Computed example of a mutant assay.
Amino acid sequence: MIPFLDLQAQYASIKEEADAAVLRVLASGQYVLGDEVAMFEREFAAYCGTKHAIALNSGTSALHLALLAAGIGPGDEVITVPFTFVATVSAICYIGARPIFVDVEPVTLTMDPGKLEAAITPNTKAIVPVHLYGQMADMDPIMEIADRYSIPVIEDACQAHGAEYDGMRAGSMGISGCFSFYPGKNLGACGEGGIVVTNDDAHMQAIRMLRDWGQDRRYHHAIKGFNYRMDGIQGAILRIKLRHLDAWTTARRNHAQHYGQLLANSSVVQIPKQVANRRHVYHIYAVRTPDRDSLQQVLQHEGIHTGLHYPIPVHLQKAHADLGHKVGGFPRSEAAAKTVLSLPLYPELKPWQVERVVEVVEQMAYVG
């Protein structure tokens, strides 16, 4: 059996460090926020090349508070893409704003800058590009348009820890960047977690207050806030994992290159493409194939687990039917949803496992 993800193997590789970190927190009594979280914030900000990082309880909370700190509220419009995890859109809805979709580029499946300007109205108050599968969106033209209209950009970098665009780290180009530490992410907690990075002092202060009941000091609630604080144990574990992230990213990129070499001339699947000026960190290795469901069944039959990221674009989800979109509204996102299949990819994957996956994929060329 080849799993889609092997968190037990990752834990085994850092067991002594992780166990010691957890015991250190238990002994300290600092179970919510505390020194470990504060140190992780400083270390992750340095990793991203930003002044500040504010640790939270999830990536969804990061998106929610980044939007609030940017002054977005009821009646405002926020531009994003429909081909993303639903949290991107849910966070916009939490604050009473309206998600406005633009379709994705056909190759990277990230926001198409060529469609962005036409979506801007006087009510547009933020743009949220999604760095999908570990590759950043085309940020230069997005930032140029945003700057011309004085619209803040909030990066959804929940899948892009360490990804780069012209040498700039994910999260460092907009007014803020939002990350998830869900366990399966390239940098994953042992539970839930998230963070906002920013160079803006006012945004940092607002998010710190918002995550902790709106307090500017204990029991002084200056604004209405939330309980979005990170646990001390998660901060300690993430500090350990951050030290390994570059090595894990190198392993992911090597596995992706191996897949790419073996599948370069495949008649079954289209492989993901890394754009020249971007560093892809391969959170997901999503191939595309017109017979996706059959291929997934064949792989499953051979003991190879796969994933679907994402089989229904957000504009066609029942939960967001109130937005009024129909099939055909965003054809590239809809085509991607029908054809993407995520193959196993994680640092501990073995070369022979990559080769076995490709062997089974290529069997599809002879089926029927």
Rank of each mutant, 00 (worst) to 15 (best):
I54T: 15
V130M: 04
G188V: 05
R279N: 07
V281G: 09
S176F: 02
H283C: 13
F226C: 03
I233D: 02
E155D: 03
N227T: 03
L65Q: 07
A62T: 01
Q300V: 01
G184P: 05
E355Q: 14
L263A: 12
H52N: 12
A18C: 10
G184A: 14
V298S: 08
G193L: 07
W213N: 13
D322Y: 14
V104R: 01
M173E: 01
L5Y: 12
R217M: 09
G368Y: 14
D200V: 05
D291M: 11
G329P: 03
A336T: 05
A206E: 09
T84V: 15
G177A: 03
G324D: 05
T50S: 07
P313K: 08
A126P: 09
H315M: 03
L345F: 03
I271R: 14
L238R: 08
E41S: 05
P183Q: 10
E117P: 10
V268A: 01
V25M: 09
P313M: 02
A256T: 07
Y346V: 04
L132N: 11
T60C: 08
T50Q: 07
R279E: 09
K273C: 08
P351S: 02
P141I: 06
F83M: 14
E41T: 03
M173V: 04
F226A: 01
C158F: 02
Q274S: 14
L308V: 13
T50C: 14
V314D: 12
G34Y: 02
K115S: 11
H258I: 07
L210D: 05
I195S: 08
G232F: 04
Y149P: 07
G191H: 00
A20P: 06
P313H: 02
A126L: 08
H52F: 15
M111H: 06
P106F: 04
A170Q: 00
P122F: 02
K51E: 10
Y228T: 01
E17A: 15
V89L: 01
V358G: 10
H255Y: 06
